[in-house]
Nucleic acid binder design. Sequence first.
DNA 1: GTCTATAGACGGATAGAC
DNA 2: GTCTATCCGTCTATAGAC
Lengths: 188, 188
Amino acid sequence: MPTKGEQSKERILETANRLFYERGFNSTSFQDIAEVSGVPKGNFYFYFKSKGALLETVIEGRLERFREALTGWERDLSTPKERLLRCIDMLVNDRAEIERYGCPMGSLSLEIGKQQPEMKKQAAKIFRLLVDWNENQLRELDVGDQAPALAHRLIARLQGASVLAFVLEDKIRAREEIDDIKAWIEAL
Amino acid sequence: MPTKGEQSKERILETANRLFYERGFNSTSFQDIAEVSGVPKGNFYFYFKSKGALLETVIEGRLERFREALTGWERDLSTPKERLLRCIDMLVNDRAEIERYGCPMGSLSLEIGKQQPEMKKQAAKIFRLLVDWNENQLRELDVGDQAPALAHRLIARLQGASVLAFVLEDKIRAREEIDDIKAWIEAL
DNA sequence: GTCTATAGACGGATAGAC
DNA sequence: GTCTATCCGTCTATAGAC
């Protein structure tokens, strides 16, 4: 059973994770996180030495969740093609949030990466993880030495689909684009 | 010849346009714009009634420049395929800035669109303009009723390539992705 | 003298930090 | 809960153009 302190820390992290996504990092104040999480903002500096440190922990949490998801898909899905398609389906499952707030990692990276190179590198780890994992799946298909380029292309297309889904808010076209990405992978 | 007032307004706009791109909207203060432009901060409210109004004018300026560029390409390039390729070449020409700051419109939309729906709509106009223009070019090719979907796909792929170029900072893969987009268009 | 434009000091609010 | 810094935005005194 978690101690009260662990619960507070977890509540801060969960709330920060959500608000950084929904409102953006710079537009989310400690005040906001305190109000939503119920944890007084005075406590924040007991758990995190700065707002940047809080962000860093949020990113680490996201990285960890991605790792778990990817290992889960490797365990539960038997063919590389199924796994690639499952990865694409992230956009289908989260389409409502993506249309409202964009891709969590894409939008965060673009916002903070312009001024905080260190954070940008942290965020890039998640993209590298995703690209490498897809590259491994592609290698199991018969794509020769094209695996790195195709993996990069797949993540790029998912990012592009997310940006346009956010900006244009056109559900039909967004869905159409995802379907085309899936068809492209299925045809490999 | 522009009056002195027009020069000040223009200097504020140019500087804001650049800093909003390089540092992000929320991370750019009037103080910053004043220092870089040389125009004292006290003057800003003579020309713009708020920071949001300044942003709006910046976006309008970008929209206008896009319109001019697109009409220029229609005038100077004779075939639709050349025009589409010229559009893609934006990423090649601006690759250094895109790697450092992302796509100007993509990153701005994602940052401000989460909290300012009105500004998001303004920014979306530029994307609509681009998609529609490319759709017109595609219609002149023999793509049947695929023009809308292909135009959407082209802009999505350009956005995706920009995001990954920014996040991963991998010049080789970024170039490879652009080349693939070009090859795809050329094969149409 | 009037209108446009300038310059900077000032204030309330709110941020992150402790 | 306090502290300091900084944010956006306001106010006003003034300078130059015509």
